[in-house]
Amino acid sequence: MGTLLIILRKEFRGFFQSPFGWILLSLITVMQGWSVSSAMKALQDAPIPESLVYIVFHMPQFWFYFLALFPLITMRLFAEEERAGTLETLLTAPVQTAQLVLGKYLATLCFYLVLWIPSFLQFQIFGLLTDLDPPFSTGSLGGVFLLIVLMGSLFIAIGTFASSLTSSQIIAGVITVGLLFIHYFLGYITVIYGDQFPAASLFHHISASEHLRDFSRGLISSSTIIYYLSAAAFVLFMTHHALNYRRWKS
């Protein structure tokens, strides 16, 4: 456990020791802030039967920067170690592959959570400044951030996996974007082909946009929670094997 924490701490600090982490943090803050103010404008202009949280996370720009985030924070993880040769020094130290995978993964997840702190605060500001009840329920705010964590845990695992496949950050990033887009658009299969085929319920089950719709209304489903967590665990398991296999092969 000690080794895992050491790797986690080093990786986590790594995000803040270059401008990279700070740029991402400001990017997310600006994008979310923009979403919040446009959502408030939308509520001002016309009555909408949804909460502020729902509208913010259903702005057209949301999925763009949300999905673009993951390749940026994960592509470096193993590809860079492989390119620089430091994977060899890491794996010839008394470190298990599993400790390395989990350490890097959890560090990225922690950094990802930090990225959402400003957005969370933006929702609190409304109540602080206006003395009114915020135009959303605790359930929808909690639900949406729970889903952000859940999607993050799977999507970061996918990015980590892609990074373990190659020594090129660019290729790792492209694979991650590709997999995330495919995952996202699989959720739209039922929109295109309707519900009249046997596997339709499967596509509903993995549809990220449907998850977002439900969670941002405060409808938290345990099967979705289990889906994201178990898929993340599976992808991490694959990462572990991909790393060992690559090492054993070449």
């Binding site: 020791q17 620089a84 040769g85 430091t86 008394p94």
Partner: peptide, 18 residues
């Protein structure tokens, strides 16, 4: 256990540049 007993300097001397 064996890695604890070995000090290894790889050929390319990989280090964290930053």
């Amino acid at each position: 256990e064996t890695r604890r007993r070995i000090g290894y300097l790889p050929e390319s001397v990989p280090l964290y540049r930053d």
